[in-house]
Nucleic acid binder design. Structure first.
Lengths: 165, 165
DNA sequence: CATAAGTGGTTACATTTGAAACCAATATTA
DNA sequence: TAATATTGGTTTCAAATGTAACCACTTATG
Protein backbone atom coordinates (compact mmCIF):
# COMPACT_ATOMS: atom_id res chain seq x y z
CA UNK A 1 0.00 0.00 0.00
CA UNK A 2 2.36 2.72 1.16
CA UNK A 3 5.73 3.06 -0.50
CA UNK A 4 7.77 2.36 2.62
CA UNK A 5 6.28 -1.05 3.14
CA UNK A 6 9.45 -2.40 4.67
CA UNK A 7 10.69 0.55 6.63
CA UNK A 8 12.12 -0.99 9.75
CA UNK A 9 13.19 1.98 11.75
CA UNK A 10 9.80 3.53 12.09
CA UNK A 11 11.31 6.30 14.15
CA UNK A 12 8.63 8.52 12.71
CA UNK A 13 5.36 7.67 14.35
CA UNK A 14 2.72 6.61 11.90
CA UNK A 15 -0.91 7.47 12.20
CA UNK A 16 -2.01 3.90 11.92
CA UNK A 17 -0.85 0.99 13.92
CA UNK A 18 -0.26 -2.24 12.09
CA UNK A 19 -1.13 -4.89 14.57
CA UNK A 20 0.72 -7.54 12.64
CA UNK A 21 3.93 -5.55 13.00
CA UNK A 22 3.36 -4.51 16.58
CA UNK A 23 5.92 -6.21 18.78
CA UNK A 24 3.79 -6.84 21.86
CA UNK A 25 1.16 -8.45 19.68
CA UNK A 26 3.63 -10.61 17.82
CA UNK A 27 5.27 -11.75 21.00
CA UNK A 28 1.93 -12.71 22.40
CA UNK A 29 0.89 -14.71 19.36
CA UNK A 30 4.22 -16.46 19.14
CA UNK A 31 4.35 -17.29 22.80
CA UNK A 32 0.81 -18.61 22.77
CA UNK A 33 1.41 -20.81 19.79
CA UNK A 34 4.49 -22.30 21.33
CA UNK A 35 3.00 -22.71 24.78
CA UNK A 36 -0.19 -24.27 23.54
CA UNK A 37 1.62 -26.86 21.50
CA UNK A 38 3.87 -27.78 24.35
CA UNK A 39 1.13 -27.72 26.94
CA UNK A 40 -0.77 -30.18 24.86
CA UNK A 41 2.23 -32.46 24.59
CA UNK A 42 2.86 -32.46 28.33
CA UNK A 43 -0.78 -32.54 29.20
CA UNK A 44 -1.79 -35.51 27.12
CA UNK A 45 1.24 -37.59 28.05
CA UNK A 46 1.75 -36.79 31.71
CA UNK A 47 -1.25 -34.76 32.88
CA UNK A 48 1.04 -31.88 33.55
CA UNK A 49 0.20 -28.24 33.20
CA UNK A 50 2.85 -25.75 32.22
CA UNK A 51 3.20 -24.34 35.72
CA UNK A 52 3.55 -27.87 37.07
CA UNK A 53 6.14 -28.71 34.47
CA UNK A 54 8.11 -25.60 35.39
CA UNK A 55 8.15 -26.60 38.99
CA UNK A 56 9.43 -30.03 38.06
CA UNK A 57 12.06 -28.54 35.81
CA UNK A 58 13.43 -26.52 38.68
CA UNK A 59 13.20 -29.27 41.25
CA UNK A 60 14.95 -31.63 38.88
CA UNK A 61 18.01 -29.45 39.03
CA UNK A 62 17.73 -28.02 42.53
CA UNK A 63 16.52 -30.33 45.26
CA UNK A 64 15.22 -29.22 48.65
CA UNK A 65 13.60 -26.00 47.60
CA UNK A 66 10.60 -24.42 49.25
CA UNK A 67 7.63 -22.91 47.46
CA UNK A 68 9.06 -19.47 48.13
CA UNK A 69 12.32 -20.50 46.52
CA UNK A 70 10.36 -21.60 43.48
CA UNK A 71 8.68 -18.24 43.28
CA UNK A 72 12.09 -16.62 43.00
CA UNK A 73 13.28 -19.00 40.31
CA UNK A 74 10.26 -19.14 38.06
CA UNK A 75 8.73 -15.71 37.71
CA UNK A 76 5.47 -17.36 38.72
CA UNK A 77 3.46 -16.11 41.63
CA UNK A 78 2.77 -17.69 45.01
CA UNK A 79 -0.65 -18.93 44.14
CA UNK A 80 0.37 -20.56 40.89
CA UNK A 81 3.20 -22.31 42.65
CA UNK A 82 0.98 -23.44 45.47
CA UNK A 83 -1.49 -24.95 43.05
CA UNK A 84 1.16 -26.56 40.92
CA UNK A 85 2.82 -28.02 43.98
CA UNK A 86 -0.34 -29.52 45.36
CA UNK A 87 -1.29 -31.06 42.05
CA UNK A 88 2.18 -32.53 41.69
CA UNK A 89 1.94 -33.85 45.21
CA UNK A 90 -1.41 -35.44 44.43
CA UNK A 91 0.17 -37.21 41.45
CA UNK A 92 3.07 -38.42 43.57
CA UNK A 93 5.53 -36.51 41.46
CA UNK A 94 6.96 -34.57 44.38
CA UNK A 95 7.29 -34.99 48.13
CA UNK A 96 6.68 -32.34 50.72
CA UNK A 97 8.53 -32.57 53.98
CA UNK A 98 8.41 -30.22 56.88
CA UNK A 99 11.49 -28.19 57.54
CA UNK A 100 12.32 -28.83 61.20
CA UNK A 101 14.00 -25.46 61.52
CA UNK A 102 10.93 -23.62 60.27
CA UNK A 103 7.65 -25.38 60.54
CA UNK A 104 5.91 -23.19 58.00
CA UNK A 105 8.34 -24.14 55.30
CA UNK A 106 7.94 -27.26 53.19
CA UNK A 107 10.93 -28.83 51.56
CA UNK A 108 10.07 -30.10 48.11
CA UNK A 109 11.68 -32.83 46.06
CA UNK A 110 10.91 -35.03 43.11
CA UNK A 111 9.84 -38.51 44.07
CA UNK A 112 11.21 -41.53 42.22
CA UNK A 113 8.20 -41.42 39.99
CA UNK A 114 8.62 -37.70 39.58
CA UNK A 115 12.19 -38.11 38.53
CA UNK A 116 11.28 -40.74 35.98
CA UNK A 117 8.74 -38.42 34.46
CA UNK A 118 11.19 -35.56 34.61
CA UNK A 119 13.74 -37.58 32.75
CA UNK A 120 11.28 -38.38 30.04
CA UNK A 121 10.06 -34.84 29.68
CA UNK A 122 13.42 -33.14 29.47
CA UNK A 123 14.27 -34.68 26.10
CA UNK A 124 10.77 -33.99 24.86
CA UNK A 125 11.07 -30.36 25.83
CA UNK A 126 14.49 -30.17 24.24
CA UNK A 127 13.07 -31.67 21.11
CA UNK A 128 10.54 -28.89 20.86
CA UNK A 129 13.12 -26.28 21.51
CA UNK A 130 15.52 -27.77 19.00
CA UNK A 131 12.79 -27.91 16.45
CA UNK A 132 12.09 -24.24 16.94
CA UNK A 133 15.77 -23.38 16.90
CA UNK A 134 16.37 -25.41 13.79
CA UNK A 135 14.62 -22.69 11.83
CA UNK A 136 17.38 -20.29 12.85
CA UNK A 137 21.03 -20.07 11.92
CA UNK A 138 23.63 -20.21 14.68
CA UNK A 139 24.10 -16.47 14.39
CA UNK A 140 20.40 -15.89 14.68
CA UNK A 141 20.22 -18.02 17.81
CA UNK A 142 22.94 -15.96 19.33
CA UNK A 143 21.17 -12.77 18.30
CA UNK A 144 17.86 -13.93 19.66
CA UNK A 145 19.42 -14.79 22.96
CA UNK A 146 20.83 -11.36 23.45
CA UNK A 147 17.79 -9.56 22.08
CA UNK A 148 15.47 -11.33 24.46
CA UNK A 149 17.73 -10.40 27.31
CA UNK A 150 17.57 -6.75 26.38
CA UNK A 151 13.83 -6.68 25.89
CA UNK A 152 13.34 -8.50 29.15
CA UNK A 153 15.35 -5.90 31.01
CA UNK A 154 13.46 -3.09 29.45
CA UNK A 155 10.09 -4.60 30.20
CA UNK A 156 11.21 -5.32 33.71
CA UNK A 157 12.07 -1.68 34.12
CA UNK A 158 8.43 -0.82 33.41
CA UNK A 159 7.31 -2.95 36.26
CA UNK A 160 9.94 -1.56 38.60
CA UNK A 161 9.82 2.13 37.89
CA UNK A 162 6.14 2.23 37.07
CA UNK A 163 4.75 2.52 33.59
CA UNK A 164 5.49 5.02 30.89
CA UNK A 165 4.04 8.45 31.76
CA UNK B 1 28.93 -24.11 37.22
CA UNK B 2 29.82 -26.11 34.12
CA UNK B 3 32.63 -24.97 31.92
CA UNK B 4 30.54 -24.35 28.83
CA UNK B 5 28.40 -21.75 30.50
CA UNK B 6 27.83 -19.88 27.29
CA UNK B 7 27.55 -22.63 24.76
CA UNK B 8 24.90 -21.39 22.38
CA UNK B 9 24.54 -24.20 19.97
CA UNK B 10 23.46 -26.82 22.44
CA UNK B 11 23.23 -29.31 19.61
CA UNK B 12 24.23 -31.91 22.14
CA UNK B 13 21.28 -32.58 24.38
CA UNK B 14 22.03 -31.94 28.02
CA UNK B 15 20.69 -33.97 30.86
CA UNK B 16 19.32 -31.01 32.68
CA UNK B 17 17.08 -28.36 31.35
CA UNK B 18 17.79 -24.81 32.35
CA UNK B 19 14.45 -23.17 32.49
CA UNK B 20 15.96 -19.72 32.34
CA UNK B 21 17.53 -20.59 28.99
CA UNK B 22 14.56 -22.48 27.61
CA UNK B 23 13.10 -20.54 24.73
CA UNK B 24 9.41 -21.30 25.27
CA UNK B 25 9.75 -20.22 28.87
CA UNK B 26 11.59 -17.05 28.05
CA UNK B 27 9.09 -16.10 25.39
CA UNK B 28 6.29 -16.61 27.82
CA UNK B 29 7.86 -14.50 30.53
CA UNK B 30 8.74 -11.74 28.12
CA UNK B 31 5.35 -11.69 26.49
CA UNK B 32 3.60 -11.62 29.84
CA UNK B 33 5.67 -8.78 31.16
CA UNK B 34 5.03 -6.72 28.09
CA UNK B 35 1.33 -7.53 27.88
CA UNK B 36 0.68 -6.89 31.53
CA UNK B 37 2.28 -3.50 31.44
CA UNK B 38 0.36 -2.48 28.38
CA UNK B 39 -2.90 -3.99 29.53
CA UNK B 40 -2.64 -1.90 32.64
CA UNK B 41 -2.03 1.24 30.65
CA UNK B 42 -5.04 0.66 28.41
CA UNK B 43 -7.18 -0.66 31.18
CA UNK B 44 -6.75 2.16 33.62
CA UNK B 45 -7.08 4.89 31.03
CA UNK B 46 -9.79 3.60 28.74
CA UNK B 47 -11.27 0.51 30.34
CA UNK B 48 -10.06 -1.51 27.44
CA UNK B 49 -8.89 -5.09 27.57
CA UNK B 50 -6.21 -6.32 25.22
CA UNK B 51 -8.65 -8.21 22.99
CA UNK B 52 -10.82 -5.10 22.80
CA UNK B 53 -7.85 -2.95 21.96
CA UNK B 54 -6.86 -5.33 19.20
CA UNK B 55 -10.28 -5.11 17.68
CA UNK B 56 -10.11 -1.35 17.72
CA UNK B 57 -6.65 -1.39 16.22
CA UNK B 58 -7.94 -3.36 13.27
CA UNK B 59 -11.14 -1.41 12.83
CA UNK B 60 -9.18 1.81 12.95
CA UNK B 61 -7.42 0.79 9.79
CA UNK B 62 -10.08 -1.30 8.09
CA UNK B 63 -13.66 -0.11 8.33
CA UNK B 64 -16.71 -2.23 7.62
CA UNK B 65 -15.37 -5.54 8.84
CA UNK B 66 -17.44 -8.32 10.30
CA UNK B 67 -16.56 -10.34 13.37
CA UNK B 68 -15.46 -13.16 11.12
CA UNK B 69 -13.13 -10.81 9.28
CA UNK B 70 -11.65 -9.85 12.62
CA UNK B 71 -11.03 -13.47 13.45
CA UNK B 72 -8.95 -13.75 10.32
CA UNK B 73 -6.94 -10.64 11.06
CA UNK B 74 -6.21 -11.09 14.73
CA UNK B 75 -5.39 -14.70 15.47
CA UNK B 76 -8.07 -14.49 18.13
CA UNK B 77 -10.97 -16.88 18.24
CA UNK B 78 -14.66 -16.32 17.58
CA UNK B 79 -15.67 -16.11 21.18
CA UNK B 80 -12.99 -13.66 22.20
CA UNK B 81 -13.94 -11.44 19.31
CA UNK B 82 -17.61 -11.69 20.12
CA UNK B 83 -16.99 -10.65 23.70
CA UNK B 84 -14.63 -7.85 22.77
CA UNK B 85 -17.12 -6.56 20.21
CA UNK B 86 -20.01 -6.51 22.61
CA UNK B 87 -18.04 -4.75 25.29
CA UNK B 88 -16.86 -2.17 22.78
CA UNK B 89 -20.42 -1.73 21.62
CA UNK B 90 -21.55 -1.24 25.19
CA UNK B 91 -18.98 1.52 25.59
CA UNK B 92 -20.07 3.17 22.37
CA UNK B 93 -16.66 2.65 20.85
CA UNK B 94 -17.99 0.78 17.85
CA UNK B 95 -21.22 0.52 15.90
CA UNK B 96 -22.83 -2.65 14.62
CA UNK B 97 -25.00 -2.46 11.56
CA UNK B 98 -26.77 -5.25 9.84
CA UNK B 99 -25.47 -6.26 6.47
CA UNK B 100 -28.50 -6.13 4.13
CA UNK B 101 -27.03 -8.77 1.85
CA UNK B 102 -26.54 -11.21 4.72
CA UNK B 103 -28.65 -10.68 7.76
CA UNK B 104 -26.42 -12.76 10.02
CA UNK B 105 -23.50 -10.53 9.38
CA UNK B 106 -22.82 -7.38 11.35
CA UNK B 107 -20.75 -4.61 9.87
CA UNK B 108 -18.53 -3.05 12.49
CA UNK B 109 -17.03 0.41 12.65
CA UNK B 110 -15.51 2.77 15.14
CA UNK B 111 -17.90 5.43 16.35
CA UNK B 112 -16.76 9.02 16.67
CA UNK B 113 -15.96 8.36 20.28
CA UNK B 114 -14.23 5.16 19.32
CA UNK B 115 -12.06 6.92 16.83
CA UNK B 116 -11.09 9.57 19.36
CA UNK B 117 -10.02 6.89 21.75
CA UNK B 118 -8.26 5.04 18.98
CA UNK B 119 -6.32 8.12 18.07
CA UNK B 120 -5.20 8.60 21.61
CA UNK B 121 -4.19 4.99 22.09
CA UNK B 122 -2.17 4.57 18.93
CA UNK B 123 0.55 6.95 20.08
CA UNK B 124 0.51 5.40 23.51
CA UNK B 125 0.98 1.96 22.05
CA UNK B 126 3.72 3.25 19.80
CA UNK B 127 5.39 4.81 22.77
CA UNK B 128 5.56 1.45 24.48
CA UNK B 129 6.84 -0.23 21.41
CA UNK B 130 9.42 2.47 20.80
CA UNK B 131 10.56 2.22 24.35
CA UNK B 132 11.07 -1.50 23.96
CA UNK B 133 12.78 -1.10 20.63
CA UNK B 134 15.02 1.61 21.94
CA UNK B 135 16.95 -1.05 23.79
CA UNK B 136 17.89 -2.57 20.44
CA UNK B 137 20.16 -1.38 17.68
CA UNK B 138 18.72 -0.96 14.18
CA UNK B 139 20.37 -4.21 13.12
CA UNK B 140 18.91 -6.00 16.08
CA UNK B 141 15.43 -4.74 15.26
CA UNK B 142 15.81 -6.06 11.79
CA UNK B 143 17.10 -9.37 13.11
CA UNK B 144 14.29 -9.68 15.59
CA UNK B 145 11.74 -9.05 12.92
CA UNK B 146 12.98 -11.86 10.76
CA UNK B 147 13.61 -14.23 13.64
CA UNK B 148 10.09 -13.85 14.93
CA UNK B 149 8.79 -14.55 11.48
CA UNK B 150 10.73 -17.78 11.29
CA UNK B 151 9.76 -18.96 14.73
CA UNK B 152 6.16 -18.13 14.03
CA UNK B 153 6.17 -20.25 10.91
CA UNK B 154 7.73 -23.14 12.70
CA UNK B 155 5.29 -23.01 15.59
CA UNK B 156 2.45 -22.72 13.15
CA UNK B 157 3.64 -25.86 11.46
CA UNK B 158 3.17 -27.71 14.75
CA UNK B 159 -0.44 -26.70 14.88
CA UNK B 160 -1.01 -27.63 11.25
CA UNK B 161 0.79 -30.93 10.95
CA UNK B 162 0.12 -32.01 14.49
CA UNK B 163 2.75 -32.04 17.20
CA UNK B 164 6.19 -33.54 17.21
CA UNK B 165 6.02 -37.35 17.40
C1' DC C 1 -38.72 -25.70 -3.16
C1' DA C 2 -37.83 -28.79 0.62
C1' DT C 3 -34.24 -30.56 3.11
C1' DA C 4 -29.52 -30.85 4.46
C1' DA C 5 -25.21 -28.70 5.16
C1' DG C 6 -22.53 -24.68 6.25
C1' DT C 7 -21.66 -20.00 8.19
C1' DG C 8 -21.98 -15.76 11.41
C1' DG C 9 -22.35 -14.93 15.84
C1' DT C 10 -23.87 -15.71 20.84
C1' DT C 11 -24.64 -18.30 25.06
C1' DA C 12 -23.70 -21.69 28.67
C1' DC C 13 -20.64 -24.16 31.31
C1' DA C 14 -16.35 -25.66 33.03
C1' DT C 15 -11.58 -24.45 33.86
C1' DT C 16 -7.89 -21.22 34.66
C1' DT C 17 -6.11 -17.24 36.62
C1' DG C 18 -5.22 -13.32 39.82
C1' DA C 19 -6.04 -10.34 43.96
C1' DA C 20 -6.86 -10.13 48.35
C1' DA C 21 -7.98 -12.16 52.63
C1' DC C 22 -6.45 -15.44 55.52
C1' DC C 23 -4.04 -18.92 59.01
C1' DA C 24 -0.06 -20.55 61.20
C1' DA C 25 4.60 -20.01 62.50
C1' DT C 26 8.59 -17.13 63.13
C1' DA C 27 11.12 -12.80 63.92
C1' DT C 28 11.21 -8.32 66.04
C1' DT C 29 10.59 -4.86 69.40
C1' DA C 30 9.46 -2.88 73.71
C1' DT D 1 7.93 -12.07 77.32
C1' DA D 2 3.86 -9.77 75.55
C1' DA D 3 2.62 -7.34 71.52
C1' DT D 4 3.52 -6.48 66.66
C1' DA D 5 5.14 -7.24 62.28
C1' DT D 6 6.74 -10.49 58.75
C1' DT D 7 6.90 -14.60 56.19
C1' DG D 8 5.39 -19.28 54.14
C1' DG D 9 1.69 -21.07 52.20
C1' DT D 10 -3.47 -21.86 51.30
C1' DT D 11 -8.19 -20.54 50.46
C1' DT D 12 -11.80 -17.69 48.67
C1' DC D 13 -14.01 -15.07 45.37
C1' DA D 14 -14.36 -12.70 41.03
C1' DA D 15 -12.89 -12.09 36.43
C1' DA D 16 -10.92 -14.04 32.08
C1' DT D 17 -10.71 -17.81 28.86
C1' DG D 18 -11.76 -22.03 26.08
C1' DT D 19 -14.94 -25.65 24.39
C1' DA D 20 -18.97 -27.02 22.87
C1' DA D 21 -23.65 -26.40 22.08
C1' DC D 22 -26.63 -23.45 20.07
C1' DC D 23 -29.86 -20.08 17.12
C1' DA D 24 -30.57 -17.63 12.97
C1' DC D 25 -29.75 -17.20 8.45
C1' DT D 26 -27.84 -18.57 3.88
C1' DT D 27 -26.19 -21.83 0.42
C1' DA D 28 -26.09 -26.25 -1.78
C1' DT D 29 -28.37 -30.60 -3.20
C1' DG D 30 -32.20 -33.52 -4.43
Amino acid sequence: MTTDENSLQAAVPQDDLRLEKFLPYRLSVLSNRVSNAIAQAYGTRFELTIPAWRVMAILGRFPDLSAADLVEQTAMDKVAISRAVSSLFKNDYISRSEDPSDRRRQVLNLTELGREVYERIVPLAQQYENDLMSSLSPEERQQLDSIIEKLMDRAQAWADRGLID
